[in-house]
């Protein structure tokens, strides 16, 4: 393959590429959301123990998985930016943070609305819930720290350190239901397979795929504005047709 991958590590070429890719992720995402929600509500049977309330799982589990994976991807990009001093990696980390924070919030919100009818409480200071709350604070801390430093390159380095150190929290969230005796139920999806009904699996994996595509689309769309903002003094931005009045 004669593709020069490093070509796309330059903000100017990546800006073009990201713009072309966004619709290819956005529309399949919308379609998969529709399919997943349809299966989740009209095909998947009622749960024997939790009744209709269990249907929250189809949005709760995918957003929780995304909140953890997006953090690791964000920390990975931040680390690349820190080690190799690549501008685009740091911009990608900044673009991922708000989406990751929103998925962490959806995870906590849907969890509260599921916990109330099942456990009788919106919130408990359980290991799983508490570590997920810390994840949300780490995202917010990353965003706030980056915004508080005027020089963007220094902001990249400081927030990269926070992101890298904070990534220790992700395995804590994942294994919390095993390591501690928690109120939160065990993992629904395991590496060794799942015990769910086939239609429930189809609904959950459709929404999971939809969330992935959504996160990619919205991150690519956001990073384009970040690239323009931070490269505004360069020749290629000055020559962009969309920036001409």
């Amino acid at each position: 393959m004669a593709i020069n991958w490093f070509k796309y590590s330059a903000p100017a070429t990546f800006y073009e590429l990201a713009g072309k890719l966004v619709p290819w992720f956005a529309w399949p995402s919308a379609l998969l959301f529709a399919i997943g929600v349809y299966i989740g509500f009209f095909v998947a049977p009622t749960d024997a123990v939790q009744g209709e309330a269990y249907r929250i799982i189809f949005i709760h589990v995918p957003s929780s998985i995304l909140s953890m994976f997006l953090y690791l991807i964000m920390a990975g990009y931040a680390a690349l930016g820190l080690i190799f001093n690549t501008r685009l990696s740091s911009m990608m980390a900044s673009a991922l943070a708000p989406t990751g924070a929103l998925f962490a919030f959806i995870s906590l919100w849907t969890g509260a609305l599921w916990g109330k009818p099942m456990w009788g409480a919106w919130w408990v200071w359980d290991a799983r819930l508490t570590s997920e709350l810390i994840l949300l604070f780490l995202y917010l801390g990353f965003i706030a720290l980056h915004a508080s430093i005027d020089d963007p390159r220094r902001a990249d380095r400081a927030s990269a350190l926070l992101a890298i150190v904070g990534s220790v929290n992700v395995p804590i969230i994942y294994f919390s239901v095993k390591w501690w005796n928690t109120l939160h139920q065990g993992s629904t999806v395991k590496f060794t397979g799942t015990s769910m009904h086939v239609a429930m699996q189809q609904a959950m994996f459709s929404v999971l795929a939809a969330c992935w595509l959504y996160a990619i689309a919205v991150t690519l769309a956001r990073v384009r504005s970040i690239i323009l903002e931070r490269e505004r003094n360069t020749q290629w931005v000055a020559e962009l047709p969309e920036a001409r009045s």
Binding site: V37, A53, I56, W109, L113, K116
Partner: peptide, 9 residues
């Protein structure tokens, strides 16, 4: 609870 979850998302 169910629509509150999907609605917020």
């Amino acid at each position: 609870y169910v629509w509150g979850s999907y609605g917020m998302a």
